[in-house]
Write a protein that binds this DNA or RNA. Structure first.
Lengths: 236, 236
DNA sequence: TCGAATTTGTGCGTATGTATA
DNA sequence: CTATACATACGCACAAATTCG
């Protein structure tokens, strides 16, 4: 037993052991675990302690209990309750992305301001369209500082959500700010998105900060309202 | 005590009583509730039972406990730190509200669905305009269940943000869901807001749940883009 | 700085209720 | 009907964190 475990409350030690039983395959998803009385003997603790361990694992979505039947390991883990709270909900089955234009340039002064770059710095710029089932649903201008852009420029053509790509290159974020507004589609945007000019779009402007507080991404995205919702949940 | 309550487990009966204490204003957000020993005397039950009631209310986000300090009623999620940070940013100095129409009726079936009411229940309905410096910036349809509406119907004519009014009547919330989208102003909306029909509006649809999980508010608001921003911050 | 009082957290033992197989 | 399993409930003791004089 490690020092870490030694000072943990009993019920947490047992909870960890239970998790290990599942990880090691001794307890398999869908199957029953030993009854409370067996576990009491096995771990030599009180019923209170066993039940507290089980209760938390039920809360964590690892086990499921039902009166009268043995406690079981859940087949499919319960969905994350880490609750990011914000969901970009895109309607459509097959999501893809298309790059209209990309360059590496020294102008785009407004974007460079948002990225806290000097005027002489270069930025990667991508103009992209988000497709759902081969229909365009969003138009995006994406700006990345040079060090970041070099790492993910290939991914920007394949993935609309670039955060996984950033993570794979160890570019992590600690802060995201989004401003949501609305606008009427311009002729240019309407052409790209297959709309009538003037139709309402959801505008999302986003700035992402890296773990050192330095901006790593700035983007402006315009979504078709019929294929997009922005949902926020506060509280639990 | 109703028949429903009579057959409920003790800890659930007490949990309900605790929720009622908050709804009736006997226990207020941010303040301490009686200690476990005091509650044991009050309700004449064991500590196990009291603790199970409290544990579930902590899980529900209604109470918060910390070893060594009294258990407290949670502040409403908005004013506590925690993700996401959501800000409705309205441009303007002098903010006011104007009620276009209000009634108490038994139709409005869609809104009643969102409020989880039966078809025979009545709802309070307010059609309101948010003014900033005497210029309209938002149009809102507000639906309240009858018990809530009766408490704040006078405030609805004075305050655009009804949450403070709700709090003063001990109607507290534990969860808010908002969906943000965009739309083109109809002729009706354009007239009210002083716009050209077709102009883009920010749509916010909101459902608020009380501490017992029952909806206490449903609203649809359309903001003029030039006077409104919706900002979300995720992370530290 | 210290200690005493208070409060919640952890843990034990026991008894009984209730759903399931 | 019976055996088994989890659910509810009581009472007790001590630990650990906080508060306050």
């Amino acid at each position: 037993m490690s020092d870490e475990q030694r000072k943990l409350p009993l019920y947490l030690q047992i909870k960890n052991k239970m998790v290990n039983n599942i990880k090691e395959g001794a307890w398999k998803p869908g199957e029953a675990i030993p009854s409370e009385n067996r576990l009491i003997e096995q771990y030599n603790v009180s019923r209170t302690t066993i039940r507290q361990s089980i209760r938390e694992l039920v809360q964590d979505g690892v086990l499921e209990t039902r009166r009268g039947t043995p406690t079981r390991v859940r087949q499919t883990p319960k969905e994350e309750e880490g609750n990011p709270g914000v969901v970009h909900h895109e309607l459509g089955e097959e999501l893809s992305v298309q790059v209209l234009r990309s360059d590496q340039c020294a102008d785009r002064y407004y974007a460079k301001g948002e990225l806290m770059l000097d005027d002489i710095d270069e930025v990667f710029f991508f103009e992209r369209v988000r497709m759902a089932d081969a229909r365009p649903i969003a138009y995006q201008q994406l700006f990345l500082p040079k060090p970041v852009g070099e790492k993910v420029k290939d991914d920007a053509a394949k993935m609309f959500d670039i955060f996984p790509a950033l993570g794979m290159h160890d570019v992590h974020y600690k802060n995201i700010k989004e401003t949501v507004s609305a606008s009427n589609a311009t002729q240019y945007e309407a052409d790209i998105l297959g709309l009538i000019p003037g139709e309402a779009l959801v505008d999302i402007e986003r700035t992402t900060l890296g773990i050192d507080g330095i901006p790593i991404e700035y983007s402006r995205t315009k979504y078709i309202t019929s294929a997009f919702n922005y949902r926020i949940e506060i509280g639990r």
